[in-house]
Design a protein around this nucleic acid. Structure first.
Lengths: 340, 340
DNA sequence: ATGAAAGCGCTAACAT
DNA sequence: ATGTTAGCGCTTTCAT
């Protein structure tokens, strides 16, 4: 039979209150009794019941992790890595992470994750863009929230994102430094702040280098930011018959799509066109040539978010801090010096 | 303030006992009162507290998912997909999945996952091979367990695996059907039942086709079943100077390693050597040529395991059922007919 | 057919 | 410095 606090109390010849206090390092308990209690705890292999603790108004010890269906099933393990990061940091703090998806097109009135309704979590992490109405909905439950890889204009919610603008600058600069002057941008859903930031970085870098920003070279017609979207965007781009020498894709999935298009159309990378992506996913190393990209520290994003969330849970103080995690240029073989 | 069962009772002008009974579809409650209760529940947006339910001796509503460190961090999203499968099935049954890793070299006395010590789960899923002493350890806690992609010889624990033997046969048959006669097997840690089964299938297929099993063509020297291991094994194989025409690698990671070796040594796939893998991971489609393989339904494995586990939890009857999920041949471009 | 009340394991006033 | 006790929200036996 599993030992309870009562068993420990008996074993240590003290009251249950003393056990509880001792276990919570209350200064009212003398070192001597505390040691007695600790000894009994060890002997009985006692661990307090989470449910009982939760019931008396303490933490449940759980954190909810929410993302949309489509991201959950995505082949690139981008959000999966973020989740793993939360898992790491949560474990270090004696928390568990409950993962749940919501429909990509969540509408008011749709069912929200059960762990919110049942209040079996102490805080919420949302990864990636979710419908604003969803956020409106869960805000009602008054739980601490941290956003990862997303920010909402409507509410001041703490967030953890990578430095997308800086990444965009770095990516574009890398191309510029290699002598490229005619650089295209391929993006998807620009309403996603991460993507629009990556575009902002592109424009900034161009401007800083006194290069003009040519609207014709910015392709944001694809709604989907996946391989297919990259393929289609490349098609659009090349149909314009501009003499570009480099492409910066807003993420690796689209970059891979561009690469497929290049292969199908006998365009050599990097000989004819230099290509850089963003994210640094697994696949980058497998494709030929390996993709130059901007590395997003996915595990870190998850860990930072948990840190921030737990801090807000403990202090009951919803700081609206926004954490920006730095990114890193990873040079591989899909970009090269432009030889005129 | 969050509504409790008391609030519902007042709202419906009944006792809390009646509310509880009604909510559990107890036949003692009349349809009329039940409807009254349901109405109040809806009006108040009431959801029972998990902790309270757990405390009175019901289910915690959580399932523990355990795997070793190394598999957790593996680049191929094999176990990740299995986890997602458990997540799906768990959600359908109002359960949550708590994920936790253990050290790959777990030794007696090492800390076991907290959710077991705290009994905050109703059952355990273990994915992949874990040290036997770990299983010995957690068996003490008397919780229902289901193994995925592993079976232990020491204890009769229910398990869900894919049909590795059949897969091995199918893979080898595919090669044989294409005219290959000299077929090598590249495997890693043969103490892992899945891998040894895949080897058994290989031998069976050869024997069935009246081809001899040449020990020289079976490379199982690598302890690691990853890309590096595949690369090294290929090196060993080709140093033997046998005139093989096809290779069956025990998993895709090793097959990719073989492909790298081939590329480095100017061996053309599939022109010179046909290559088939096992698992069907994401990367297969990206490499050149795309890898022919045996598809393991990873999501299904996870879902089946949860199904089985929940069933065992509910019936309190640890059936020692072993579920075998079928696999499927996926022909891509790394294998071709052998032309003499 | 329904209600009263005990009790699950724990914490935190309040007492001593 | 430590013990007593009420109560968190729920289920379930026992009464009615």
């Amino acid at each position: 039979m599993r030992p309870t606090i009562k068993d420990v109390a008996i074993q240590a010849s003290v009251s249950t209150a003393t056990v509880s206090l001792a276990l919570h390092d209350n200064k009212r308990i003398s070192t001597a009794t505390k040691n007695k209690v600790l000894k009994a705890v060890k002997e009985l292999n006692y661990y307090p019941s989470r449910s009982a603790q939760d019931l008396v108004g303490k933490r449940s010890g759980n954190i909810g992790f929410i993302l949309t269906d489509d991201r959950f099933l995505r082949t690139e393990p981008f959000y999966t890595r973020i989740f793993l990061g939360t898992e790491f940091a949560a474990g270090d703090n004696d928390y568990y992470v409950l993962l749940k998806t919501i429909k990509t097109d969540f509408k008011t009135g749709d069912l929200i994750p059960r762990f919110i309704l049942e209040r079996s979590i102490d805080g919420i992490i949302i990864a990636g863009k979710v419908p604003d109405v969803f956020i409106d909905e869960i805000l009602k439950y008054n739980l601490p929230i941290v956003l990862i890889d997303y920010q909402t204009p409507n509410h001041p919610i703490p967030s953890v994102t990578c430095d997308n603008i800086q990444g965009g600058i770095t990516a574009t600069m890398h191309l510029i430094n290699q002598g490229h002057k005619s650089i295209a941008f391929i993006g998807g859903d620009v309403s996603h702040p991460s993507i629009s930031d990556r575009l902002i970085g592109y424009k900034k870098a161009l401007t800083n280098a006194s290069l003009s920003v040519d609207k014709e070279l910015i392709i944001t017609t694809s709604e989907s930011t996946d391989r297919q979207g990259g393929y289609n965007s490349a098609k659009v781009l090349f149909s314009k018959n501009k003499n570009i020498t480099a492409i910066y894709a807003c993420n690796d999935a689209m970059a891979i799509g561009v690469m497929h298009f290049a292969k199908d159309n006998n365009i050599k990378i990097p000989e004819d066109i230099s290509l850089i992506g963003f994210d640094d996913v697994e696949a980058d190393l497998l494709i030929d040539p390996p993709l130059t990209t901007i590395r997003v520290p996915k595990i870190d994003l998850g860990m930072e978010a948990v840190q921030l969330l737990i801090n807000n849970i403990k202090t009951k103080n919803q700081s609206h801090k926004k954490i920006l995690v730095p990114v890193e240029l990873i040079v591989r073989e899909s970009t090269k010096k432009y030889m005129n």
